[in-house]
């Protein structure tokens, strides 16, 4: 069910475009907004971008670290959200689990952002045209805002979980899952 969100974003617009005989750039790709082009083109010519492109080892290494940190972040959130939904780890309260995990979450977010920026610098032209990169950045912005504004409410769930605790878990899972799926989709669309 969660996979529906990025699926709709990426494929839905393509189907709509096909139905309307639209053959411009993919909807929600940055290519839809030509005013962004100078930024992507400039990034493509920077020395650091040229350097990464001239090596074969930087990109795989950075991407693998990106994915490893993603596994830690997504996995940590899975654990807390499974607890919020009452499915697993019932011996501790959500607040206690978050207490043990919050440094993992913060560090993996930092590592993902740093490696993500390097990956962006490495191939801005490809990302400019990608139908998945635009949605990914939008959902990522939402996910980070959610993670650092509403999600910390979990800290107060020491004895019982309010009804909207499940909603919190569902929104958190949907957002981060969508970011990951859109990210993976960059390799395909």
């Amino acid at each position: 069910m969660l996979a529906l969100i990025p699926f709709l974003l990426i494929h839905g617009f393509r189907w709509a475009a096909d139905a309307a005989d639209y053959d411009g750039p993919a909807r929600f790709a940055f290519a839809q907004f030509p005013s962004w082009f100078p930024f992507f083109a400039w990034m493509d010519e920077t020395r650091i971008s040229l350097y990464i492109k001239s090596t074969t080892w930087v990109f795989p290494l950075v991407e693998t670290i990106h994915i490893l940190a993603l596994a830690v972040l997504l996995g940590s959130l899975f654990l807390i959200d499974l607890r919020l939904l009452g499915i697993a780890i019932r011996k501790w309260s959500p607040a206690q689990i978050l207490e043990q995990l919050h440094s993992f979450i913060n560090w993996s977010v930092i590592i993902i952002l740093i490696t993500g920026v390097i990956l962006f610098i490495a191939e801005p032209r490809k990302l400019f045209d990608s139908a998945a990169f635009g949605p990914k950045m939008m959902i990522l912005a939402l996910a980070i805002i959610f993670q650092y504004t509403l999600y910390p409410q979990v800290r107060n769930m020491r004895t019982r979980i309010p009804i909207w605790g499940r909603l919190l878990a569902f929104v958190s899972l949907s957002l981060w899952f969508s970011v990951a799926v859109c990210g993976r989709a960059i390799g395909f669309v």
Binding site: A3, L70, L74, G75, F78, L79, F177, R184, A185
Partner: peptide, 29 residues
């Protein structure tokens, strides 16, 4: 792509609890 994506999700689902148990064994969490 769905297979590969599921492989990635499985990785997250497996690694985080492995880390929790291992960190308890190491005496870190």
């Amino acid at each position: 792509p769905v297979l590969e994506g599921s492989h990635l999700i499985g990785m997250a689902l497996m690694m985080a609890p492995v880390m929790m148990y291992d960190f308890r064994l190491i005496g870190f969490r």
